[in-house]
């Protein structure tokens, strides 16, 4: 086992915070808004995306030198679509209830620009090892974002988390949260929060640099 280098660690971790596909790159908005009305749906969607992204990144990185550049996009799409179909049927067989709620959004993972984007921008230009680390980091970041949105919407919209009621029967659900506008609202407010945190962090770093300069 090779010890993880600094770069490998970076590739793994960047997708979760700094380059988070949702909060930093604002990619994959379609499933993000459509299926996050409960935490279970978010996990299922995140899991399917994880499987597709990691699987196709591995194959693309492994076969990158065999694929002629003229048809690389077609090949990526074939690989991605195969994984999506596998995920679709597996979910349908294992958890039909969740599959019914996700509906058309499982096949639509093919069109998630996050996945094709990672193949074109990263996996097709790097080693298998790095491509896998990158895919795992990105997919985990995506799943985390889905889960955050799903949890907020389910708690407010249904008074529950993972289907378990958190409050008493008197709880009045915020219906808008499980409807599409709730997705837009929650996503907008979370983006606001993350940008605010980023600005705060930058200000703090600037001040630290200033202070250090002043000392020296």
């Amino acid at each position: 086992m090779v010890k993880a280098s600094q770069q490998e660690y970076e590739e793994l971790i960047k997708g979760i915070w700094r380059d988070n596909p949702v909060f930093a790159q604002v990619l994959g908005m379609c499933p993000m808004l459509a299926v996050t009305n409960s935490a279970i749906n978010a996990i299922a969607m995140g899991g399917a995306t994880f499987f597709v992204l990691v699987g196709s990144s591995f194959l693309v990185a492994a076969f990158k030198s065999w694929i002629p550049k003229q048809v690389r996009i077609s090949c990526f799409i074939i690989i991605i679509a195969t994984f999506v179909t596998v995920a679709d049927y597996t979910l349908l067989a294992l958890i039909p209830g969740v599959h019914k709620e996700l509906g058309a959004f499982i096949p639509l993972i093919v069109a998630n620009c996050l996945i094709l984007g990672r193949q074109e921008a990263f996996a097709s230009k790097s080693t298998i090892r790095l491509a896998l680390l990158d895919a795992i980091g990105m997919a985990a970041g995506f799943m985390l974002a889905l889960l955050m949105l799903g949890a907020v919407r389910e708690i407010l919209g249904d008074g529950a988390l993972f289907g378990i009621k958190l409050f008493g029967t008197q709880f009045e659900p915020w219906v808008i949260m499980i409807l599409p506008p709730g997705g837009f609202l929650t996503l907008g407010l979370l983006l606001l929060l993350f940008n605010w945190l980023a600005v705060k962090r930058r200000k703090f770093l600037d001040e630290v640099i200033k202070a250090e300069r002043g000392q020296s």
Binding site: E172, W174, V175, I176, L179, P181
Partner: peptide, 10 residues
């Protein structure tokens, strides 16, 4: 509009 979509009952 927010209230109507959020608490249609009340």
């Amino acid at each position: 509009a927010f209230l109507l979509a959020t608490f249609p009952n009340a």
